[in-house]
């Protein structure tokens, strides 16, 4: 070992390329592995939903069934899910995924003004989605939508498999959206402080991975829970 070599051993050392994954950063790789893991927790819940729904004779106690006296333990029939409203929310989430990509692309091109705008719009999209979910559950914005929310309409957590799986899975997803909005807000503050001015978009890309995952899972949840006809 030469004395010359010794003198610069004590600094940080770069990693070589990996033979299969190339130059992927540890953070990005870690996020992918986390998302794989998270996908399995969603699949646990969706599996429970699928098995319960597949095995049940009566999933939703509609007005018709209620009047026939088939669900005597309920005080009133259970409402349908508002597909149109939630389709709007789904569209909102997809749009926010697009704006996330736009923000990433802008950081790479060092166009920080657009990057800040697109990331801001992404956060706004996520926040509006959460507001939409509150409206759907509680009717928080009933003065706009003239809809009093599923709880007041008689969809109570715990009263039936239909109600319980709906709330458990959409709320679990909602927590992911909340996490994502918080995460992106932290990134946005970093961006405002000039953290990404050098065009290094790695952290934005990792945050984007999480956001796209939340979006993708929602499309699955929307399809399985809302769209499969009763």
């Amino acid at each position: 070992m030469s004395a010359n070599a010794d003198s610069h051993h004590h600094g940080p050392v770069d990693w070589p390329q990996e033979e299969h994954v190339g130059e992927i950063t540890a953070g990005k790789l870690g996020m992918w592995i986390f998302l794989l893991s998270d996908a399995f927790s969603f699949s646990g819940l969706l599996l429970a939903y699928g098995i319960r729904r597949g095995a049940s004779d009566m999933w939703r106690c509609s007005e018709e069934l209620f009047n026939q006296g088939l669900c005597s333990w309920l005080e009133r029939p259970e409402p349908e899910l508002g597909i149109n409203f939630t389709a709007g929310l789904t569209f909102l989430l997809i749009c926010s995924s697009v704006s996330m990509v736009m923000s990433y692309a802008a950081v790479v091109e060092k166009d920080m003004k657009s990057a800040k705008m697109w990331l801001g719009l992404t956060i706004l999209g996520g926040a509006l989605f959460l507001c939409g979910q509150m409206q759907e559950y509680f009717g928080t914005f009933a003065f706009i939508f003239h809809h009093e929310g599923l709880i007041k309409e008689g969809l109570i957590f715990g009263q039936s498999n239909y109600a319980t799986t709906f709330y458990a899975i959409t709320a679990f997803h909602g927590m992911h959206v909340l996490t994502g909005v918080t995460y992106l807000t932290v990134m946005w503050i970093k961006m405002l402080k000039g953290h990404f001015d050098d065009g290094n978009a790695n952290m934005i890309e990792i945050a984007g991975l999480f956001w796209h995952f939340v979006d993708l899972v929602w499309i699955l949840v929307f399809t399985l829970i809302y769209l499969i006809p009763l």
């Binding site: 990693w15 990996e18 299969h20 992927i24 540890a26 870690g30 592995i33 893991s37």
Partner: peptide
Amino acid sequence: IMGGINYVTTVIRFR
């Protein structure tokens, strides 16, 4: 899971 993510990433990327 936190440990698992760490171990999997470390072995793939830090050899």
